[in-house]
Every structure is written in structure tokens, then in C-alpha cells.
Amino acid sequence: MLRNILLATGLICATFSQADEQLKRLNLPAGYEINYFAKNVENARQLAVSKSGVVYAGSRRAGNVYALIDNNQDGIADRKIVLAQGLNMPSGLALKDGDLYVGEVHRIIRFKNIDKQLSKPNYEVVFDKLPSERHHGWKFIRFNDEGELLIPVGVPCNVCAEDAQFGRIFSLNLQTKQLTTIAQGVRNSVGFDINPQSGVLWFSDNGRDMMGDDIPPDEINRVSLNGEHFGFPYVHGGSVLDPEYGKDKTLADMQKYTAPKLALQAHVAPLGIHFYRGKQFAKNMHNKLLVAEHGSWNRSTKVGYRVMMATIKEGEITAYEPFITGFLDKEQTLGRPVAFAELADGSLLVSDDFANAIYRVRYNKK
């Protein structure tokens, strides 16, 4: 009944396969429709789309890397290839010059000229000097505008002392193999993107646990200066002192660290973030920052489990609104959004590592 009322008022309008009850639970703004691009993609995480339209997906616990092919261009993958199995949490991946780069916990591997090697894929190790700790060790990777590979290394703990190997986002020069610190004081970032209008890096960060239901905030951050410090483990969310590592800090000390551009609700677990670059969506969606709130695991009442959209003006977040909801039904988890990619037509792909699915979102221009 409620769904019919919302549809009638135009507040929610989505088209679903009538045979799929799971998909019908998802709600989007008026004019948008969501369908499956691919099912049975175990533990789907970061996505990348090649120039020829092949969609690549990493995974975490599954240890697989996938290629998904839509041969008839109907917006639904009709072929799935497992490119590699048994890898060490190959969550992150990125494409450059036709090569597929995959971020495992301890190394970066590369499938050269991947679209042409799908029938017999082979990879080579391009960098193997990353820490091997698996706690917060899974990756999200992306190339910056200078052609260097951005690699986060989360801290191997809930909260622990600073260490130059951990709690950072690095930039890797693939020729010299040199790592440069882009951001430090970062507990566990599993998502970042470069604003196509300003060229500035934005990233999500997951706050520490075991301080209660409502603190500290999770974060959306902007990097203004290479190497700047975002507070961990001393200050969380720009405002909460850590009871152990921040107990001797003063207000002046707190102001030395970069505060988030948006302090999110505690434990919503923001993962992938993505600036919408396409032209298919409504004009007001162009350059919106999409945020996949993966959802809480350690809260008395679950929060997150949704895709949000942030409006950014002059480097500041001026609005933060729902884009896709319905992954949570009361306390029952139905899905957990992870990351985004765009197809050539401007439609949006969203991975879900709980439902083992990749969704495709389109806008009906009516």
C-alpha cells in the first residue's frame, strides 16, 4: 500500500522485473529504474569498464576476479568469465591503457591487454611491497590524472598507534615503484574518486568501533594538500577524541588535523564513492557524489545499507540525500552496496557483495 502511494505521488518511481521480489524492494527517485546487470557474481566489489564494454569485478572473501560481457547490448550480462581464483582478497581493480590492475592485500598484479586475453588470461606481479596484514588490508584502487596508481592501506586493528606503513593512501609510480603518501591519518578507506571538475581527490573513511552506537562518525574527506593528516588515531570525525590515543590532546591539537567535509552517522560504513560523469541521468545528477553506505555490523540497530548522493559546491557538501534505499528491511539485510562504475550510455552499475549482484540504474527521459 505504501509503495503504491509513493508511486502515485511521484516520490518514488522504479521499474522492476515483476518476477524478482528482491529487486522490487529497492526504491529510487522518480524517473529512475533499476535492474540486474549480473547475478551470481560472488562477493562483487570494485568495478571497472573497458572501452569495449567488458565489465570487470573484483571480490574480497571469494578471491575471484570476473569479466562480465553483454554480447547483445541489452544491459544484461550474458557471459561471466572467472579470470582468476584463489587470490588474496582481490577487491580493488582499475584499467589503464587496456591493462587490468588488481589490488590484492599484499601486491598489485596486472592482466595485460585484458579484453584480448579473456579466453586464456595470465597476470604478472607489478608491485609486491605492500603489507600482508589482512585486517583492513583489502584494497580499492584508481589511477590519478598523472597516471599513478592510488592505493590505500588500512590499519591492521580497530585502533592502534601510527605506523608509516598503514593508515594512508599512497600513490604508486609504476615505473620507479616509488610510493608517495597522499593522505595519512586514514583508518580504512575503501573508496575514492577525483572530482572531474576540480581535479581534487575525495575519499571515504570508516571510523573506529567499540565506542558505542553513535560515535565516532564515519567520514567523507577531501584532499587539499598531499600528505595532510586526517586525525586517526587521535581524533575521529574531526570532533571526537580517542579515549586512548587522544586523551592528552587539546582543542588546538585537534585543529592541526583535517576535519571531514561530511561527518556521517557512525557505522554506516561508506565504501565506494563516485562522481557521476555521464549524461543519461537527469541534469541535477551531473557531478553528484554517489556514496555506497555498506551498512553497520556492530550497532544495536542497523544503519546504512543504502546509496546516498552528495551535492558539492565550491568544495563543500551542501546536501546529502538518498538515491537507492531498500537494502535493509527492518533488521533484515537484503543487500550491501559497495562500488560504482558507468557504462558508455551513462547508466550506472552498483555492486552488492551480499546479494552477489551488480545492478544497472537507468533514467527514463519522459
Results as ranks from 00 to 15, higher is better:
Ala19Gln: 11
Gly92Thr: 07
Asn221Thr: 15
Gly304Phe: 01
Asp218His: 06
Val361Trp: 05
Leu87Met: 11
Glu219Ile: 09
Asn43Met: 07
Leu289Gln: 02
Phe275Tyr: 06
Arg142Cys: 14
Leu28Glu: 06
Phe140Asp: 03
Ala164Tyr: 12
Lys112Pro: 09
Asn298Gln: 15
Val240Thr: 14
Tyr123Val: 02
Glu293Met: 03
Ala341Lys: 05
Tyr359Ala: 06
Met254Gly: 12
Gly212Lys: 11
Thr318Met: 00
Leu264Glu: 03
Gly272Asp: 07
Gly191Tyr: 04
Leu130Ser: 14
Lys24Ala: 10
Phe140Trp: 09
Lys139Glu: 08
Glu33Leu: 10
Asn356Phe: 09
Glu124Asn: 08
Lys96Gln: 15
Gly272Ser: 09
Tyr56Phe: 11
Val303Met: 08
Glu314Gly: 10
Gly147Arg: 11
His294Asp: 05
Leu225Val: 13
Glu42Cys: 10
Glu133Leu: 08
His236Ile: 11
Ala252Arg: 15
Gly246Asp: 09
Leu28Asp: 00
Arg277Thr: 14
Met211Asn: 13
Gly238Leu: 03
Val190Asp: 01
Ala357Gly: 12
Leu7Lys: 12
Phe140Asn: 00
Ala14Val: 04
Gln178Asn: 12
Leu290Asp: 02
Asp248Pro: 15
Gly295Lys: 00
Glu148His: 13
Lys288His: 09
Thr258Cys: 14
Tyr234His: 13
Gly227Cys: 07
Ala62Gln: 00
Arg360Ile: 13
Tyr101Val: 04
Arg142Glu: 15
Glu33Arg: 14
Phe327Met: 06
Ser189Trp: 03
Gly304Ser: 06
Gly63Tyr: 04
Tyr276His: 04
Tyr56Cys: 03
Leu149Ile: 08
Phe166Ala: 06
Asn35Trp: 15
Arg187Ile: 10
His274Ser: 06
Phe354Asn: 13
Ala14Ile: 02
Glu148Lys: 13
Leu334Gly: 07
Leu28His: 04
Asn226Ile: 15
Ala77Met: 12
Leu241Tyr: 10
Ala62His: 02
Trp297Ser: 11
Glu293Arg: 00
Arg299Val: 02
Lys116Tyr: 14
Gly103His: 08
Asn188Met: 08
Pro196Val: 08
Leu262Glu: 03
Gly326Gln: 02
Ile141Asn: 06
Leu172Asp: 00
Ser59Leu: 06
Ala14Lys: 01
His229Gln: 11
Asp70Val: 12
Val200Asn: 05
Ile141Arg: 05
Gly246Ile: 10
Gly75Lys: 14
Gly335Asn: 03
Ile194Val: 13
Ala67His: 04
Glu314Arg: 13
Glu244Thr: 12
Phe354Thr: 13
Asp115Tyr: 10
Cys160His: 01
Gln18Ser: 15
Arg79Asn: 15
Asn364Glu: 11
Glu124Ile: 11
Phe354Arg: 11
Gly326His: 02
Asn88Pro: 07
Lys129Glu: 15
Leu149Asn: 02
Asn364Ala: 10
Asn195His: 10
Glu316Pro: 10
Ala94Lys: 01
Leu225Lys: 15
